[in-house]
């Protein structure tokens, strides 16, 4: 039985970790939730973002938080290009092909990273890596506190883009009724690529906020993909607020599962919740009826 005194710090920690998961899931909820693309390359692209942040920091001395100005836009361009040039073209609109193309891409990206960066574990050393914030008797690592607020801001920003801009309206129109949207003059390929780019840009944000408390290797993305899909479904496909709440829930479930079932078996909690949600509320916590 775990010590009661550590439940509060553990919960708070679960929330900050969950916020990091939510950041990764935000991009996915746009790509998977809105466009219904099961993007197997999501983890590999997160890894690209992490290497970009690492590279900027160790070679050019750019702080990971300053890299927020560089990495997300670059990732946007990468995402746009990938969707327009490869995924959209190769998939011929068939789900199984999208799946294979993104799988193929992830193999390519990971192994190119292995070739260029080797398989060493890379970290960044920042002055605040070991800083903590004391809150309710818990020492919260400063980078994770920043990531927590970063996740809130990102979710809000995405929600604004989707509901207040022409692009957002076009994305939603395409998602709902592709043929109809094209009839009223929306360039579907462009909108798909914009959404994909936006989703990948979110990964860029996640990478900047994650690296100060994590590491990067060519296969680092694997550890986050499944979690991200879980969060997207849990929160409701395409719901940004849902993804945020879903991320926080998963973070807390993981923390408590680890505490009560042990860190290894505790991982099971995430999947059990996932299965139960799919069975009894497949539209997710905040999604619309499917």
């Amino acid at each position: 039985m775990p010590d009661l005194a550590i439940i509060v710090p553990s919960l708070l920690n679960g929330l900050t970790t969950g916020a990091l998961y939510a950041l990764i899931a935000l991009g996915l909820t746009l790509i998977y939730g809105v466009l219904h693309i099961i993007n197997f390359a999501h983890g590999a692209l997160l890894m690209v973002g992490l290497y970009a942040v690492w590279f900027l920091n160790t070679r050019l001395g750019i702080d990971p938080y300053v890299a927020l100005l560089i990495v997300p836009p670059a990732m946007f361009v990468l995402g746009y290009g990938l969707q327009r040039g490869i995924i959209g073209r190769a998939s011929h609109g068939r789900d199984e092909n999208i799946l294979l193309v993104t799988l193929g891409l992830s193999i390519v990206i990971e192994n190119l990273a292995l070739y260029f960066f080797r398989s060493d574990t890379r970290i960044v050393d920042t002055p605040y890596s070991f800083e903590t914030v004391e809150f309710l008797g818990a020492f919260l690592p400063l980078p994770k506190v920043i990531a927590f607020f970063g996740a809130l801001i990102s979710a809000a920003a995405l929600w604004l883009v989707m509901s207040k801009t022409d692009l957002g309206r076009a994305i939603r129109a395409i998602a709902r009724e592709r043929k109809g949207a094209q009839l009223v003059g929306i360039n579907a390929d462009h909108v798909y690529a914009m959404s994909f780019g936006l989703g990948i840009a979110c990964l860029g944000v996640a990478a900047c906020l994650l690296l100060p408390s994590y590491y990067v290797t060519p296969s680092v993305g694997h550890g986050f993909v499944l979690i991200a899909f879980t969060i997207v479904v849990l929160g409701g496909m395409g719901s940004f607020v849902g993804a945020l709440i879903g991320g926080l829930i998963i973070g807390v479930v993981e923390a408590l599962g680890g505490l009560f079932l042990g860190e290894s078996l505790g991982q099971i909690g995430i999947f059990v919740i996932f299965i139960l949600v799919l069975m009894f509320r497949p539209q997710g916590l905040l999604g619309h009826k499917v």
Binding site: I6, P9, S10, N13, T17, V220, G258, E263
Partner: peptide, 15 residues
């Protein structure tokens, strides 16, 4: 016992 990868060690360290 912890998984590979374990994404966060705070829980273990709290224990």
């Amino acid at each position: 016992k912890h998984a590979n990868p374990t994404r966060d060690f705070t829980n273990i360290v709290l224990q």
